[in-house]
């Protein structure tokens, strides 16, 4: 995958921040005029007094602003959740390669906060895409996205289909007949979706996650193992990824 890269340090102003689900927040940041991104790319945010920047998928880029959807996990995300409109965010990005944005029928699959980059993909692909997503329960669904998701499943059945999004995948594939599947979510979901795609002989692009130290491809802290035509090699999630072909990942 070749794309132009623009890895500069950025400072942007928070234009909006709000809680959109249980422990989940949406933040919008005004970015420089020459900023450009594509679905699957991420930004790496500096959190006060923290050595390692925290990576987050870009959920949208529109009107000179990027949106990030994030879930409160630990200190870094707690810091970001406390930012106010007008505060400055120091970030690196856009980083990584992103999904292929080819105009072919794409099934976008998201799980939990992983819905963010595939929502962006669906926006860019428009009529060429269908977005399906799974959440633990209805309180975990970001309200700002709910109407944009074509099919929702919840583990407890509180909204949409009852069960994991994986349980509905065969039906979704048979009905929609996608030319490819793009997925983001917890590791296990990525693995299961990649397996399903393989069974259906559909190419699958997965957005991987790994804890990052540098997020610019120098520390080798975020590597995954790939098998490319029998050749086993390491690839960094931050620079070579985060999007990889599912069939190439050594799970």
């Amino acid at each position: 995958m070749t794309i132009e890269k623009n890895k500069k340090m950025n400072k942007g102003e928070v234009t909006q921040i709000e809680r959109v689900a249980n422990e989940m927040f949406l933040i919008k940041i005004k970015v420089a005029a020459d900023f450009n991104s594509r679905p699957g790319q991420f930004v790496s945010i500096l959190c006060d007094n923290h050595t390692m920047r925290r990576p987050f998928s870009i959920m949208n880029f529109e009107n000179g602003e990027i949106s990030v959807l994030f879930k409160k996990k630990g200190e870094g995300t707690a810091y970001i959740a406390c930012l106010n409109v007008g505060d400055t965010v120091d970030f690196i990005g856009p980083q990584g390669n992103g999904f292929h944005c080819a105009p072919e029928k794409t099934l976008c699959v998201g799980a939990g906060v992983g819905v963010a980059p595939v929502y962006y993909l669906k926006k860019v692909l428009g009529d060429n895409a269908k977005l399906v997503a799974g959440f633990q329960n209805e309180n975990e669904i970001p309200f700002c996205l709910q109407s944009e998701i074509d099919f929702i499943a919840t583990d407890d059945g509180s909204l949409g289909g009852h069960g994991s999004i994986i349980d509905y995948l065969d039906a979704q594939i048979n009905e929609y007949k996608p030319a490819r599947i793009c997925v983001c979510g917890p590791h296990i979901v990525l693995k299961l979706v990649a397996e399903k795609a393989k069974q259906h002989c559909i190419p699958c692009e997965v957005a991987m996650e790994k804890t990052m130290a540098c997020s610019i491809g120098v520390c080798r802290g975020c590597v995954v193992t790939l098998n490319r035509n029998g050749k086993i090699d390491n690839a960094s999630v931050c620079k070579d990824g985060p999007v990889f072909l599912g069939e190439e990942i050594v799970w």
Partner: peptide
């Protein structure tokens, strides 16, 4: 060298731990 394969970096207070394994 392929380096180590498990989790390689983690943040600690005012620093980090790495086990890149000289990849």
């Amino acid at each position: 060298r392929p380096g180590n394969s498990w989790n390689r970096v983690i943040e600690v207070t005012s620093g980090m731990i790495n086990s890149i394994g000289l990849e």
